[in-house]
């Protein structure tokens, strides 16, 4: 039974740790499917986390916090769009710039506004998203097997967790069952064809980037308002890059993205749980190895040793209308 409880606990923290990855990964999916590389997921999450926690602390409302997080994150996404769509700048360079601006400005503004060494004030219960207990969760908690699974794994998360997982089928539906999704995929593969059909390439790409901004904003809000009761400097700690890795690992598909993020979340949860205690057969695994594993796996995948990851064909190339 102890073993079972331990597994439930690891899976529970897997879910918690994979939510920000999943939101950021789906965010990246929208922009990369539309042909815009986005290295700046990390930065947009960070500003989202900062804006969310600050607004929630100042206005004493979790919802206003979430709204602000989304708004600011979308604003940064639009800067990326302005540079890479309107001015046909290098998308990688623009993403790197956004990460820098986000990392610096969150600390500077946080220090100037709250004077707590770059932190925002600790959020009170009403200013955070509380965990939702599903009906009957407490009642069947003691039922063996099903009880803990229902009470721990399915129930007892914040609304943003359910939102993140609901975004997976929703994104699939948008991508493969709507006109917007079809056009978005087309603009990532062959923008000239979309242009010929009389559809604005730039506007489509901007809309995809707005979706990206919304999702990174929610991802940031999750970090600072659910997982942590406030903003801490550099709290994204490379999650944006892991999300990027997950996106490639998922071959730019929403359902795969969920599994990739759960896998990377699981590696993280397992690393925290094990903390250097020995595994059966393999023996002691260094924490650093577990931390590096998502990146190693992505590199191996990219190298084509586990299937082949083929990015959207027009990704990274600014569209120039022929005259």
């Amino acid at each position: 039974m102890d073993m079972f409880n331990a597994i439930i606990q690891v899976l529970d923290s897997t879910i918690r740790l994979s939510v920000p990855l999943l939101l950021a990964c789906l965010a990246g999916l929208y922009s990369e499917r539309a042909g815009i590389f986005d290295i700046g997921l990390e930065g947009k999450m960070l500003v989202g986390a900062f804006a969310g926690a600050s607004a929630a602390a100042v206005f004493h409302s979790a919802l206003i916090g979430l709204g602000t997080a989304v708004l600011i994150s979308v604003a940064f996404a639009l800067v990326h769009g302005f540079a890479s769509i309107t001015h046909r700048g290098n998308q990688i360079v623009s993403g790197v710039a956004i990460n820098f601006i986000a990392a610096g400005s969150t600390i500077i503004l946080g220090q100037a506004w709250f004077q707590q060494g770059g932190r925002t004030p600790a959020l009170q219960p009403g200013e955070r998203f509380a965990a939702i207990t599903w009906p009957g969760a407490d009642a069947i908690k003691d039922v063996p097997i099903i009880g803990p699974i229902y009470a721990e794994l399915i129930s007892g998360h914040s609304i943003l967790v359910y939102f993140a997982f609901a975004m997976v089928p929703f994104t699939w539906w948008v991508l493969f069952r709507t006109r917007f999704g079809l056009r978005m995929r087309a603009v990532g593969e062959n923008p000239a064809a979309v242009d010929t059909a009389g559809i604005s390439v730039a506007w489509l790409r901007y809309r995809a980037l707005i979706c990206t901004g919304v999702l990174t904003g929610v991802a940031g809000a999750y970090l600072s308002m659910v997982q942590n009761g406030g903003f801490v400097k550099d709290m994204t700690a490379g999650k944006g890059y892991i999300a990027l890795a997950a996106l490639i690992f998922a071959k730019w598909k929403p359902v795969n993205a969920m599994f990739a993020c759960l896998l990377f979340g699981f590696l993280d949860a397992a690393a925290i749980r094990l903390q250097g205690s020995p595994l059966p057969i393999i023996g002691k695994v260094p924490v650093q190895f577990m931390q590096a594993l998502p990146y190693v796996l992505t590199v191996i995948l990219l190298a084509g040793f586990i299937g082949k990851a083929i990015p959207p064909r027009a990704g990274g190339v600014p569209y120039v209308k022929e005259r």
Partner: peptide, 25 residues
């Protein structure tokens, strides 16, 4: 005191943005 060394990080970011990504603006 209101400005920490992270100001440099912002300036770096802005330089990369304007001299790199927006060089054609």
């Amino acid at each position: 005191p209101a400005i920490s060394r992270d100001m440099i990080v912002i300036i770096q970011g802005l330089v990369i943005l304007f001299a790199g990504a927006l060089e054609h603006m």
